[in-house]
Design a protein around this nucleic acid. Structure first.
Length: 156
DNA sequence: GCCAACGTTGGC
DNA sequence: GCCAACGTTGGC
């Protein structure tokens, strides 16, 4: 089993939106970055995912999800009217993929980015590396456990 | 293959 | 709204 972190802007699609979705599941569409795509293609059913709220006040880890369906073509790339349309992706040769993500549980509290940065146990977390902009990132098992543990403790 | 211009992400 | 840190595009 592997662990991941996926970013979303809660103003567009929040963790609560995921929990309210049919079967608490949604296709994670719109990823248009090759490195992020490659990570999604590595995901297996049952992999655990931290859902992270970006461009939020405050930004931080909001909830836990799991991979419910492995990579398959992102249909929004074929739709000329969609914001994420890419004429370079065709049904014969899809360029972009989604995974299906199922909400598992909301964290007891949002663990803010600032607090993640302040935790020495997370010093190597990829999310916190300078200049990181990837919307899909691997997380180690230890980092995953630590973020969950932080949500159960009082904020510092 | 180089690299300047441009677009995007995302924290602040 | 600003801007650093990217990734992408396209001329050459």
């Amino acid at each position: 089993m592997q662990y991941w972190l996926m970013k979303t802007e809660p103003a567009t699609f929040s963790f609560d939106d995921l929990m309210k979705a049919p079967k608490r599941t949604t296709s994670w569409d719109g990823v248009r970055n090759y490195q992020a795509r490659n990570f999604m293609q590595q995901m297996k059913v049952g992999d655990q995912v931290i859902i992270y709220h970006s461009s939020a006040e405050p930004p931080g880890a909001a909830g836990i999800a799991e991979v419910a369906g492995e990579a398959h073509p992102d249909l929004t790339a074929f739709d000329a009217k969609d914001d994420h349309y890419d004429p370079g992706s065709t049904r014969d040769a899809p360029r972009w993929f989604v995974v299906d993500v199922r909400g598992v549980e909301k964290l007891e509290r949002l663990v803010a980015l600032e607090e993640l940065r302040g935790n020495p146990a997370l010093a190597d977390m990829r999310l916190l590396q300078r200049g990181n902009r990837l919307s899909v990132l691997p997380v180690t098992a230890a980092e995953f456990r630590e973020v969950r543990a932080m949500a159960k403790r009082k904020p510092r």
